[in-house]
């Protein structure tokens, strides 16, 4: 249960000369439901991309399932932040989700019946079963986000990395979505970037605050020290029952 699956040690990263992450160490264990929070530009998305191997660390090491990130990226289901790119692209929801079924070295291979079944299941899981053959640009932002989540699920991941996944989903959809994540969390490790702490607190098991450095907290609560040190945009954090409310800092 608590085997470390993502291990980050003394990681530093800069865009050109601008430091984004400085000497970050973080261990994510199997079965965790971790929220990454922090101010804009604090390096949350950068941290995800480093874990995925889309960016290379300047210093320090990252191990994902004991391998360098690039070797392990196929075991991670990734939901990117921007779901509005390529809206005019001639592609259906089904085709997008099928992209999650690609594996390396498949080259020309067509999608098998099994792939199509898995894609259909993933779309039904996120409540998009009625829009399977709808063109991606004709879906609303929230619907498109669900398709992207379905695409991540279709990869049959061991870890889900989600970058602000509820940004364009309405409140009802959000709580459905978090319930879904909670169910998935029984078999899959979940890491998500969010600003949405009000809802998160009922689901998340641990929190890490990212602002150049990373401060990890085993439980879904936050010390005052964390808030002041890392300038997290947090007004309220609660955990367990009864809920604890922290003052605005």
């Amino acid at each position: 249960m608590s085997q470390p699956i993502i291990e980050i040690q003394n990681l530093s990263f800069a865009y050109n000369s601008q430091k984004v992450l400085k000497d970050v160490s973080l261990t994510i264990k199997q079965g965790e439901f971790l929220a990454l929070i922090g101010p804009n530009g604090g390096g949350k998305t950068t941290l995800l991309k480093l874990i995925l191997g889309l960016l290379n660390a300047d210093k320090g090491t990252i191990r994902v399932f004991g391998h360098p990130p690039r070797k392990a990226s196929h075991r991670i289901g990734y939901v990117p932040q921007d779901v509005h790119v390529n809206k005019d692209f001639p592609v259906t929801a089904m085709d997008v989700v099928l992209m999650g079924r690609r594996t390396s070295g498949k080259g020309r291979a067509r999608h098998s019946k099994e792939d199509r079944g898995a894609a259909r299941n993933a779309l039904e899981t996120v409540g998009m079963g009625d829009f399977i053959y709808r063109r991606i640009g004709r879906l609303s932002g929230g619907q498109r986000q669900r398709v992207f989540i379905a695409r991540a699920l279709a990869t049959d991941p061991d870890v889900l990395l989600l970058d602000e996944p509820t940004a364009s989903i309405d409140p009802q959809g959000q709580s459905d979505f978090y319930t879904l994540l909670k169910d998935l969390n029984e078999t899959v490790t979940v890491v998500l970037v969010s600003h949405d702490l009000m809802i998160l607190t009922s689901y998340v098991r641990s929190v890490a605050c990212v602002n150049q450095q990373v401060h990890y907290h085993e439980e879904a609560e936050m010390t005052e020290e964390m808030l002041t040190m890392y300038a997290c945009p947090v007004e309220l954090v609660a955990h367990g029952i009864p809920h604890r409310v922290l003052r605005k800092h």
């Binding site: 889309l54 990226s73 790119v85 390529n86 992209m99 690609r102």
Partner: peptide, 16 residues
């Protein structure tokens, strides 16, 4: 299929 995946979402295609 690889060209499709790359054209639509290069980062995701790379991960796969």
């Amino acid at each position: 299929h690889d060209l499709l995946a790359m054209s639509y979402d290069e980062e995701f295609a790379q991960l796969r």
